[in-house]
Structure formats: structure tokens, C-alpha cells
Computed example of a mutant assay.
Amino acid sequence: MGWDVLVIGGGPAGLSAAINVRARGRSVLTVSNPPEENPLWRSARVDNYPGLPGATGAELLTAMRRHAEGAGAEFLTGKALSAALSAGRWYVSVGSDVYDAGAVVLAAGAVRDAKLPGEAELLGRGVSYCATCDGMLYRGRNVAVLGYSESAREEAAFLERIGCSVRYFHRPRRCAILGGDRVEAVECDGERAEADGVFILRPAMAPAELFPGLALEDGYVKTDRRMAAGLPGVFAAGDCTGGPLQIAKAVGEGLIAGQNAAAYAAAAEREA
């Protein structure tokens, strides 16, 4: 089953986009981490969102998500790992599954490109971003897990259950991935671990990694006034487009991105 619009990110920008896609009568799937992993969830008090001073971040996110659900938006918990355009539709892999849509709204927050030494060189040769996708390739072998996301320990536990010998590094500061033709070891914060595979588990993929060819400016996604991101059918909103990193700005950009993504999907459908 495909959707008109796929929204990547479940914060204020993504939820606003989803609400506005539904307001235009289009189907929308929102892919995100659990709400509790959003940085806003941990805010004890938000005083700069108009009309709701003093609300907690959790209260705001919960209300926005209920609004989106009530409008008919569908939700999927997971992390988008790759995206490809084919015959006018975007195909986005989430874990081991693939979902397609006529347009995409990127609202995954401020994620910068910060590759580890050896990461790019050994990608696909021992470096992976998804334990449930690639874990079976390493049954009975040594793997290292670099856990930067809240769900990283769960993925490490999955690897152990399927027979991997796991060395877990919790939010390491300095890491390098070592090897020639394939991964051989990792060094994190002065500790070395021999490994046949390394799973780098971040909260989200950097925008340019998810959408090759995406234009960036000072590390943020470059957009026009329609929140179009320079690739066919791709729009962006929220912290990933730069400052100010405020909820009100994210919601406004989400509205614009959602409206234009819905219009793009509708136009593509008419032309098909």
C-alpha cells in the first residue's frame, strides 16, 4: 500500500505537516521514533509557544499527535534508512520494510553529517545502521554496537538473542572503524574491540545521507518559500532547515510543507 505523502519525523514540524496533508484530503504516513525519544518530550516547561505558556514538552507533543491521529494520519515507529525515487514515487526503507509515497516531508530534526573515521569507507562491508535488518548476517560472530539512540540497547539485545557476541558502547565520544576490505575492529574512547560488523545506531539519518543530492547550507537543508528541498517531491520543515530552533517556527514550516506536499502528490496523480 502506498501513501500520498510520507512524513519523516514525529515532532512539531512533522505532526503539523501530517495534519495539513490530511486537511487537503490526502493520505499520510508519519515515520518517527517513539515520542518519548523526542528532545521536546523532556522539556519540563515551554514558555515560548503562543497561547500555551507553561505547558510541558510532553503535553504539547501528546496534544499534537492526538490532533494528527484524529485527522486520520497514520503512524509507524521506526527509523528511515534510505530513500530512492522511481517512476515518480519515493521508496523509503524503514527497518527491513519499504514504504512508498508521491511526496515526502523531511522533518527529522537537526541532524548533522558527522561520519566516524572509516564509516563511509566500510559502509556495506561491515558497517550497518539497522540491527534487525542485517543482524542475521553476523550470527555467531563478534559485533560492536555504537549506541547513540534511546532504542540502541534494544537492538543490541536483539543481536544477542540471534547469537551475536556483542560489545556495546554507550554514546561513545571518539570512535574509529578499522579494517581493510571489511570491518575488523572498532576503537572507542581508547578501548579496542575486534568485530566483524559494527552497528551505528543514531536517532536519525543525516538528511544528505537519506536523500543523496539534497542541497545543504551551513549543515541544514536548503529550502525555498514553499519548503521545497530541491529534489522532486521532497519538502523539509523544522529544525532540519535551520534556526531559530523553536516550536512555533517548526509548526509553521510544517504547515507550508504539508500543504505543498499534498498539492504535489495530487498533481502527480492527475498526470499519471
Rank of each mutant, 00 (worst) to 15 (best):
residue 93 S to V: 13
residue 238 G to P: 01
residue 196 D to Y: 10
residue 178 L to V: 14
residue 239 D to H: 07
residue 133 C to F: 15
residue 92 V to L: 05
residue 6 L to G: 03
residue 165 S to W: 10
residue 33 N to F: 00
residue 204 A to D: 09
residue 198 V to W: 04
residue 257 A to W: 07
residue 43 S to F: 09
residue 152 A to L: 10
residue 7 V to I: 14
residue 210 L to G: 02
residue 65 R to D: 01
residue 117 P to Y: 07
residue 259 Q to C: 13
residue 11 G to R: 11
residue 187 E to M: 10
residue 3 W to K: 03
residue 182 R to T: 14
residue 38 N to I: 00
residue 117 P to C: 06
residue 65 R to F: 00
residue 168 Y to G: 06
residue 64 M to N: 04
residue 156 A to P: 04
residue 143 V to R: 02
residue 202 R to D: 07
residue 229 A to N: 02
residue 207 P to R: 01
residue 177 I to G: 05
residue 189 D to H: 11
residue 143 V to H: 03
residue 39 P to D: 07
residue 271 E to N: 03
residue 63 A to T: 00
residue 200 I to G: 06
residue 127 V to K: 02
residue 72 G to I: 14
residue 28 V to R: 08
residue 271 E to D: 15
residue 63 A to G: 01
residue 36 E to P: 06
residue 264 Y to V: 12
residue 7 V to P: 11
residue 70 G to M: 08
residue 28 V to F: 09
residue 265 A to I: 13
residue 119 E to W: 04
residue 133 C to A: 06
residue 203 P to Q: 05
residue 175 C to M: 06
residue 237 A to G: 11
residue 81 L to V: 14
residue 172 P to R: 13
residue 157 A to R: 15
residue 233 G to M: 14
residue 179 G to M: 06
residue 169 F to V: 04
residue 186 V to C: 14
residue 80 A to F: 03
residue 62 T to I: 02
residue 192 R to L: 08
residue 115 K to H: 08
residue 143 V to T: 09
residue 219 G to C: 00
residue 84 A to T: 08
residue 233 G to E: 07
residue 178 L to A: 05
residue 103 A to M: 09
residue 168 Y to V: 03
residue 224 D to E: 14
residue 1 M to D: 03
residue 24 R to C: 15
residue 23 A to K: 01
residue 55 A to C: 13
residue 126 G to H: 07
residue 76 L to D: 13
residue 106 L to S: 04
residue 232 P to L: 06
residue 214 L to V: 15
residue 253 E to F: 02
residue 232 P to K: 12
residue 36 E to S: 12
residue 29 L to C: 00
residue 186 V to T: 04
residue 244 P to V: 08
residue 16 S to L: 07
residue 226 R to F: 14
residue 162 I to S: 05
residue 185 A to K: 07
residue 168 Y to N: 03
residue 34 P to V: 15
residue 159 L to R: 06
residue 233 G to Q: 14
residue 10 G to H: 13
residue 4 D to F: 08
residue 254 G to V: 08
residue 3 W to T: 12
residue 12 P to M: 01
residue 9 G to V: 11
residue 267 A to V: 08
